[in-house]
Design a binder for these strands. Sequence first.
DNA 1: GATTGTGAAGAGGTTCACAGCG
DNA 2: CGCTGTGAACCTCTTCACAATC
Lengths: 218, 218
Amino acid sequence: MKKKQKKTGKRRDKAEVPKAVSSRLSFYLRELEILKMLGTETISSQHLAALLDISSSQVRKDLGHFGQFGFPGLGYGVERLITSIKKIIGRDKVWQVCLVGCGNVGSALIHYKGFAASGFHIAAVFDNSHKKTGKKAGRLSILPMSEFEPVVKKKRITIGVISVPASAAQDVADGMAMAGIKGILNFARVTLKVPAGVKVVGVDLAVQMEQLIFHLSN
Amino acid sequence: MKKKQKKTGKRRDKAEVPKAVSSRLSFYLRELEILKMLGTETISSQHLAALLDISSSQVRKDLGHFGQFGFPGLGYGVERLITSIKKIIGRDKVWQVCLVGCGNVGSALIHYKGFAASGFHIAAVFDNSHKKTGKKAGRLSILPMSEFEPVVKKKRITIGVISVPASAAQDVADGMAMAGIKGILNFARVTLKVPAGVKVVGVDLAVQMEQLIFHLSN
DNA sequence: GATTGTGAAGAGGTTCACAGCG
DNA sequence: CGCTGTGAACCTCTTCACAATC
């Protein structure tokens, strides 16, 4: 636990991870899991960097934030690195997720296999519309919003996915915060206002597309 | 067209836009379109900044890259700013898009209204499976991959969306590059290798989720 | 008086380069 | 000899602060 080095002048007791680093850890993990499947046991920073199209010193520096994982002359142990990164980002447990809004996007998410494969368990699905509540969405019944808070609490859900129209998104987010949800994945095209302590990650496909055409136009 | 200002000492004939800026333009646009709908005619950098949860100087500096849009004491004209940003990112025209892979994700994208609303026109849809080709996906027939290149060329499609399983994604990307597609929106969980001149934007929901839980775990 | 546009200062992130280890 | 871990240099992005403008 005691990890102060006397040579550095910088004080940084709290393990503050640069946000640029955290956003790359997932990509490391993704490539490492592929490597593991291929039977690779060891990989150098240079190799891993090439897979991700970044520099090898970037990889080394990123991993350096969390301790010493590599062996000079050999590289990094794939299996061990996977375990370590999973622990760092919190993928070492299963997360209970609820989803609100069973339109096109919502339905696709319910059937999306990548979630389950990454340790996210969709534990409940909600929709406002009477036409949908009671029906099945995959293995789950679609519940009415009136049951939202009790179900979230009973199932100990900590993550919410919003896939409702933009006009309804803020209300849903408010309800989520109220029910104690700490992380929101938002597919609606609005910037959500949430209380401190709640983290929102937005996914806006139109924005992604615009990234693309910006490069194409320039 | 001639737009050199004599006062700046910096030489920068090529309009090089910091990549951090380009990624925010879309968000400015999104908020501005909402403001327009609400009837707002003018907005200050401070107001706009608040909507996006960034600083007002950030907004001013970002917009400053493209010329003078604002009026001191008044702010920015919403309508005019929308037009300008659209032109900058290339949203002033309609883009022809094709989609490969009609699974869960693909189907959701076909029905997703945000695309059309942002000037993206899905002009063709493809899938490998005999079970799907010939069937309808929305207003379009699902075409077999054998028709990919001719159709892309005939319809002047410049953007491709990949929503096939990870194992097939690289092949599809190769085919897209071959057919002359310049921008790829990739939903598969792999890092694609593409020739120079082709831009890829990846959307990986598991990665987004991991961003979320990283913050929750720390 | 309010608000822009912009140099200059400050943070933050990336690359370099090399000592030290296996 | 190959490769990691890491200070130092470098670069990019963000914030500050204020003259110029409406």
